[in-house]
Structure formats: structure tokens, C-alpha cells
Amino acid sequence: MPQLSVEPLAFAEGEGLVCALTVDDGPHGADTERLLDGLAARDIRAVFAVIGEQIQAPGGEDLLLRTVSDGHLLCNHSTSFADMGRWDADAVRADMLDNLQSIHQAVGDDVPVPFWRAPNGSWGVTAAVAVELGMQPLAVVNTIEDWVEQDPEVLATRLRRAIRPGEIVLVHDGGGERSGTVAALLRVIDERLAAGWSFTLPRGFGKLAGR
């Protein structure tokens, strides 16, 4: 495990045409399943930032177990979609620990959860508490506004701009219907792979997935 920093991590492992894929707000039914199928077919690992309410929904634990079995890394994304930016440290810590409990109930206590990402990018004291609990804050950058738009053509255009060498990119598989996101993402991934890109993990954490 690399040394942790309260500065949210925004960079990808490797040099040159590399990008780290991060996926928020799941697990979420068929959208997550299709995304996992697509990533498995392309031998790509990503970070999945998961919500406790989604894990506890029907089918959520099974999807999370598959996510781990497929070699992806997990990120604590809170128990709900609440804005935690003004919460005090005790409230933040309690929520993080509750979500870790939900995660480990599904996948086992030995599965690491190396990252934290604040819902809505509203950090407050959450980054400091995450580091205290052994999680690296993961930056909210290179978004495609797929929480307000699900036209695959529009999202593909936004992804082509958002996928930048050496950085992470953020998409969503939950928080609503995300079939457009999945379709656009797999399309643009294929374009980038054909152009010689690699999809890695956040800088310093590749070894956790054997990469």
C-alpha cells in the first residue's frame, strides 16, 4: 500500500497513453452486470466506488462479489448519496465504517477497500478521516455529467475529451438508469485500445490487482 495523502489522487498508473477508470454509485443491476461483462471481455480492471444502499438492494451483494472476483478494486462511497461536506468527523467516520461493514459482509473481511470518494465531490473533513481509516481519497475529475444525460452519442463525445493521458476518468453505473453510460464507455474504450491506450488503476495501487 503506498503512502496515503489527504490530497485526492487524480493520476493513473503507468506512462504515456494510460488512463484509470473509476465507476461510481453502484452496484446497480443490469447496468453493472453489462459493464462487468464488457470489462472482463477486454481484460480491464477498474475501481468501483460503491454505495451501501446499493449493496443492500436486491442482487447488490452478488454484484459486488462478482466485481471483486473479476479483479476490480473497491472504493468506499458512503452508505447513501448524502452530501457529507458539512458533517463533523465523528459522523463521517461512523458512515464510512457502516459502509465498510456492508462491503465486507458481501465480499469478506480480507478484501481491501483502498479508496474513498466523497459523494458529489463534497469533501469537508472526509479526506482526513478516510486517511485515518486507511483509505486514499480518490479525486472527482474528468466527469461526463452522465447523471443528467444518457444519450450514448453525447456521452461518447464527452468521454473522448475526459479520457486524458495519465489521469483518472469518472463514470457512473448507479444512481439511476446508466445503460447509455455503459454503451458509450465500452465504445470509447474500444477506440482507445485500438489507438494503443492502456487502462490501468490509480497511481501506486496497480499491485493490489496484480497489475
Results as ranks from 00 to 15, higher is better:
residue 16 G to N: 09
residue 103 I to G: 02
residue 165 P to Q: 02
residue 14 G to P: 11
residue 92 V to P: 07
residue 126 T to W: 04
residue 3 Q to W: 13
residue 80 S to T: 15
residue 27 P to M: 10
residue 72 H to S: 12
residue 128 A to H: 10
residue 93 R to I: 00
residue 176 G to P: 07
residue 119 P to Y: 10
residue 147 W to F: 15
residue 193 L to I: 12
residue 204 G to F: 01
residue 110 D to W: 09
residue 72 H to W: 11
residue 55 I to K: 03
residue 117 R to M: 09
residue 12 A to Q: 13
residue 191 E to S: 02
residue 148 V to D: 13
residue 167 E to S: 09
residue 156 A to V: 05
residue 99 N to C: 15
residue 28 H to E: 15
residue 90 D to I: 05
residue 144 I to H: 04
residue 130 A to I: 04
residue 60 G to P: 12
residue 51 I to D: 01
residue 81 F to R: 06
residue 52 G to Y: 12
residue 70 D to C: 13
residue 58 P to V: 08
residue 185 L to I: 06
residue 114 P to A: 10
residue 25 D to L: 06
residue 53 E to W: 15
residue 164 R to Q: 15
residue 13 E to Q: 15
residue 39 L to W: 11
residue 11 F to C: 00
residue 65 L to Q: 14
residue 116 W to S: 02
residue 45 R to T: 02
residue 167 E to F: 04
residue 125 V to Q: 12
residue 170 L to F: 01
residue 45 R to S: 06
residue 95 D to E: 10
residue 207 K to E: 07
residue 208 L to D: 00
residue 72 H to T: 10
residue 79 T to N: 09
residue 122 S to N: 15
residue 100 L to V: 04
residue 134 G to A: 06
residue 194 A to K: 06
residue 48 F to S: 03
residue 183 A to C: 00
residue 87 W to Q: 13
residue 71 G to F: 08
residue 169 V to F: 06
residue 31 D to L: 00
residue 84 M to C: 07
residue 95 D to T: 01
residue 85 G to D: 08
residue 192 R to K: 14
residue 106 A to N: 05
residue 130 A to N: 04
residue 74 L to E: 02
